[in-house]
Design a protein around this nucleic acid. Structure first.
Lengths: 241, 241
DNA sequence: CGGAACGTTGATGTATCTCAAGTGGGGTGG
DNA sequence: CCACCCCACTTGAGATACATCAACGTTCCG
């Protein structure tokens, strides 16, 4: 099962034919190198981008070039737009080499219309994206550098686990420290130093674009991480404070 | 026309009967004092809260009591939940005295089903909320204290204007400096000092819970504010970078 | 082998925080 | 009508987390 179908099926139980149709409309996809801009602010998109492989992100830019990454897209995630005319307020691009499928607005509309379970799954997916934005806001606004990084790593670990990309507490994290800084509102130098602290505490190993979480409990505690907002657990699981 | 209907009608053109129905289901509402918690993380909500009068907010809390406000709700805005079981990942409460209408999930479902224009307007509203979250993330992550406050004031001014609550470049802003700090990821002391700088520059007057923007162009320039993401302009207006 | 991109380290600067002590205004009770 | 109180606002001094600048190390790849 592709990560996209797997994710949506988790949000709302899909029928075999739902799954088949979703697989069909998202097969193939183009491969892109790292650092490619796929859509930028001001564009009017004609569909959605589904990330099949790799890591993508959406971000905003300031006039001086400063970048704020506003979301990571791991396999199964998509950059959603299905209102015409949707005007992008942010940019979308790849962080690593990616395979990305495009689903046209019209195809999506038809599938949603005929398949309520798919429509609901897409809707929940949007709610999760929004909850994630709130969590990131909290992260940048009210946590220290150490806590921010810890929280981000907990989130990514949970999301990667949900699509089966974690092995031995490790997963590929094809980000530069520069990218992490632009995600967390920190300078890359400070990211570097803070990563060293996390390593010294025996919480993580980050080498060669692979992140290993040595002490998941410790990392969660440091970040006050509660995965409820991601809805990767059992359906309807309560997101407690 | 109530602010809610006014706002939705702007997002998608509603028929007279659409408007009538929306007015009906959101009439009345209860009044609440400032600082009331209406829903908290973990709750399973049964509908949506529509703010008719006053200023409300959603926020998240840390275990040490630190608060991050994640959204302001001005008249016409609503705290949306229409998936069962929706589990709140954040809290919702009043900042000033408010009048707030509750619309049940079932009522909303029926209206959306029979009235596609309403459904589309609600959808666009959700997209705007998400774009606003991204903008706030950018604000906290990549702007200085001065720029953050300026940007927030520009946004609020635009939103208040859209619902007709701005007169002579002034509107009620029933926030404490403490609230502003919790919104912008700043301490209230620093908010205080930064406000003084903005006043000295002749950009704003903020006295007695009323904000007057003296130099809108200057404030916008300082904040690099572009109102496109709010979609308060002509329908389909391009949100350029 | 050379270069580019990324990571690391040190020194220094500064935006912002924290603590602590006022000040001011708007209600309330006497 | 005054005294008081509470809450928000203001101000100062000192601490610190993080940014910036600049150099150097490392890895990878052509």
């Amino acid at each position: 099962m592709s990560p996209w179908v797997r994710k949506l099926d988790h949000f709302a139980p899909l029928s075999p034919s739902d799954r088949l149709v979703l697989e069909e409309i998202s097969t193939g996809g183009e491969t892109h190198e790292a650092g490619i801009l796929l859509a930028q602010a001001g564009d009017a998109l004609e569909g959605i981008f589904v990330v099949v492989e790799g890591l993508a992100c959406s971000f905003k830019l300031r006039s001086d070039g400063a970048r704020q990454i506003t979301a990571y897209l791991v396999p199964g995630d998509f950059c959603d737009v299905d209102v015409a005319p949707q005007i992008m307020d942010h940019c979308f691009g790849t962080l690593s080499a990616c395979r990305i499928a495009k689903v046209s607005r019209e195809t999506l509309r038809q599938v949603k219309q005929g398949r309520p379970a798919v429509a609901e799954a897409l809707h929940i997916s949007a709610l999760v994206d929004e909850a994630t934005l709130r969590e990131w806001l909290m992260n940048i606004g009210r946590r220290s550098a150490e806590e921010r990084i810890a929280h981000l790593f907990c989130e990514l670990s949970t999301r990667m686990q949900a699509v089966g990309l974690v092995e031995d507490n490790s997963f590929r994290l094809p980000l530069t420290q520069f990218d992490l800084g632009d995600t967390l509102g920190l300078s890359y130098v400070h990211v570097n130093r803070t990563l060293q602290v996390l390593r010294q505490q025996g919480l993580i190993v980050l080498r060669g674009k692979t992140l290993t979480i040595l002490d998941a409990a410790g990392l969660k505690a440091l970040a006050e991480f509660n995965p409820g907002y991601l809805r990767t657990g059992a359906r309807g699981t309560v997101a407690s404070i």
